[in-house]
Design a protein around this nucleic acid. Sequence first.
DNA 1: CTGCCACCTCAAGTCAACTTGAGGTCAAGC
DNA 2: GCTTGACCTCAAGTTGACTTGAGGTGGCAG
Lengths: 143, 143
Amino acid sequence: MKDLDTAELARLTGLPASTLRYYEEKGLIVSIGRRGLKRLFDPSVVDRLSLIALGRAAGFSLDEIGGMFAPDGGPRIDRGRLVEKAEDIDRTIGQLTAMRDGLRHAAECRAPSHMECPTFRRLMRVAAKGGLGHSRQKPQSPA
Amino acid sequence: MKDLDTAELARLTGLPASTLRYYEEKGLIVSIGRRGLKRLFDPSVVDRLSLIALGRAAGFSLDEIGGMFAPDGGPRIDRGRLVEKAEDIDRTIGQLTAMRDGLRHAAECRAPSHMECPTFRRLMRVAAKGGLGHSRQKPQSPA
DNA sequence: CTGCCACCTCAAGTCAACTTGAGGTCAAGC
DNA sequence: GCTTGACCTCAAGTTGACTTGAGGTGGCAG
């Protein structure tokens, strides 16, 4: 496959060109040269960008992801890190599950005000004590 | 119960005084007066702050939460919103579950490199297509 | 050969939810 | 009466992941 310029890579991956430049600046991807001003990328960066997307979806920061590439470009992923992250996610799932069930209950609850619903109040107390570490969910993917 | 000043409220809720001032500035809580410079809060703000914490944990923004209080201070929560949010959370749970399972598989996978593991590659593709909207989890609660 | 226009660079802006810091004030204790 | 120090105000800084904008440049169609 032929080398790709920024626009082609953007089209292939759905990422804006500005993001690709930003990733290059951060060292997450590397361009193999220029044609005039235009960057040229090896087609393998498409895979690399998928990997980056995966890391982001798993909750790793860009810096962490940067540390997961071997100098040769291949992934160098510590399996322990994956397990750890899986556990993180698992905890989050537990909290979100409690939250979801609580919200559903609150939505159906017959009590005149939420403040009089015992389930709601229990949920409130748990949240107040920080038991539900607020696990931000992003509005949505730019897609 | 006696009115509370900022320091007492901070102690009761575990929130830093700066956050309480910030919440007041945003209109999420109201102080009922001053003693000298010090704000005085009605004890009911403790409940209110719990409610705010709950909202945050459920993934609502502070602005959204601000819209959930009736002028009288009681919660005025649209049950539809709760159901919607529960569905949001449910979707997130689904994505996180896939991610967790994928990570666990990747951690155990016998393939010499992750790039050769079909499960891993499938996960990558899904993430690249944005199917896994990156649902940020915060490192942890300040607790 | 000339323009066009896509792409470039670099600095600055955005968003959310706070935190930090400098400098001010006032109720209370000695 | 004076010091102390907790609390105050207001502006600016922080973090992460980008986006935006002004101004520049060069390959290529005509």
